[in-house]
Structure formats: C-alpha cells, structure tokens
Design a binder for these strands. Sequence first.
DNA 1: AAATAAAACTGTAATGATTACAAGGGGGTG
DNA 2: CACCCCCTTGTAATCATTACAGTTTTATTT
Lengths: 138, 138
Amino acid sequence: METKDILSRRGIAPSLTRLKIYEYLRAASHPSVDEIYQNLKEEIPTLSKTTVYNTLHLFVEKDLAKALFTDFSKNRYDIKDVPHAHFHCTECDEIHDIHEITPPRIAEDAIEGYLAKEAQLTLKGVCPRCRRQNTNSQ
Amino acid sequence: METKDILSRRGIAPSLTRLKIYEYLRAASHPSVDEIYQNLKEEIPTLSKTTVYNTLHLFVEKDLAKALFTDFSKNRYDIKDVPHAHFHCTECDEIHDIHEITPPRIAEDAIEGYLAKEAQLTLKGVCPRCRRQNTNSQ
DNA sequence: AAATAAAACTGTAATGATTACAAGGGGGTG
DNA sequence: CACCCCCTTGTAATCATTACAGTTTTATTT
C-alpha cells in the first residue's frame, strides 16, 4: 500500500511533509524529533521543527506511530525491589504498581550477543478511578 | 534494617539529606525530582534541587533505586507494527529492536479494574558491538 | 479565475527538566 | 589548628517540548 493511502485511511491528509515524515519514520530506527528534522530539512528546506512535533502527535493520535519510553527520558524514580510492572494512566497521569503482570525475568545472556541488565514493562491506559469517573459523568 | 545501614552497605555515606531522600522515595509512589524536592525542603530548608538529582543518580548507580521510563517524557518514535521489545544500549545510546522477547500481549481487561491499551517492554544493557569493543580495548 | 474558508505549516517565545560547574561548608584526621 | 575530602549549594547553560499567533497552502464555491 502506498504511503498516501496509509495516511488517508486514517483520515490524515497526505501532504508532502506528512508523507516524508512517515517515510522517514518507517525507514529509520526510532528517530528522535531532532533527527527527523535535521534529515528532512535538506529535502524540505522550509520545514519547521514544530511541524515535526505536530505531525508525530497526529500520527500517534491516529495510531500510526508510537512514542517510546526509554532510558533517555526518565523522570520518575522507584525503589521497590519486587519485580512489577507500571501502569501509566493517561487521564490522571498517575503511575500505579501492577503486580498481576511482571516484566519477564531476562537472563543476562538471553538475547544472543546482548548483555541484558534490566527490563521494564510499562502499560498505558485508564486506571479504575478514571474509568468510574468517566462512566458517571457521561 | 535501618536506612543508615542500607546506604552504608552500598558504600554511600548516610548523610541526613540522603537518608531523607531515601525514605521519601521508599514511602512515596514513583515521585518526580520536583516532588521530592518540594516535600523535603520543609524539613531541610537548605535543600537544593541539584542535591536531589545528585543523590538519585548516586542511588541508581549503587543499585538502590531505579529510573523509570514512562509516557511523560518520550523522545523517540517508532512505527513498526509487529510486537517487539526495545533494547537500549547504555554505552552507545542506540536503540535496537528485539524480536526474541516480546512484550506480553495484555488483554484490555487483564488487570482487574484497569483498561490496558498498550504495553511496552524495554531492556537496558550493552549491545553486541559495544561488548566487542570493550573486550578488544581492554 | 476570484473569493472564501479550512487546514497545514511556520517561527518565536515560553516552559520545564536536566546537567555543568564552580564555589561554599562541615566533619574528621594528623 | 590546619588540612583535606566529600557533601551540598546556587547559578547558569542546555535541551526537549509546548504555546501561540500569524502566514501559506489547499480545496471549495461562486
């Protein structure tokens, strides 16, 4: 399927900028906003970084792309020693510990060639309290 | 075990500031740096935010605490649709797709009361290339 | 083709988290 | 008492992200 159609299907107008960003994203490896911007501004000299942000937000909203959480961006700390997952509620922005599901225990040499030191499992969605509030108010 | 001893065991001098930060971290729920700072400066009026950063970095280095990756601060994007994990190499800062291990498929209602929409599994460690380079140069 | 409205795009400024860095302070040791 | 080391502090710099208002482009209607 052509990129144009992929965007159209999701209700995104397939402008040149959006096509290029989509294609860069598909070809590259987890690029940062700046990487996308730096690389595309050769082809699209008028490109603005704000547009890259806007476009990525749009893609995420329309389920065409995902925002990753990685070690680059850590702004919460935890001290619990029992393995557990984290649930981030997108409504209230709270983080809850989840013990029903745990990050897989990964041996250091589980993945050929890699030395794995830590695994984090993060879930995203709506927490019980926010679900109740949504139901009540609608 | 007393907090003082927990720190000492890891080779961290148990200063008042560090004790308080450790105890706050243990009692609170995934606090941000600012939350820790705001709450402790009542007790420790001279506290500086830099100290909170320094102390947390120290705890992480000594394996007393973990930095979480969450949706709050995401700065990489991905478009792949096959479920896969991400491996963040702490030496070269690259992110690799890992297909040998995948995030557990989590049904929306898998966790009592929660609505789970997405799961991300992130590993941390050293990638094959960096491991080879370390070996060669030492 | 002109007129209009809506949607995309842009640039600048503001915000917020984090880091860099150089200097201050306190406690223990010789 | 002098010295040194480590902890702590404050300011300034950096970097990613967002806010916002204005401009350009595109599509639509006349």
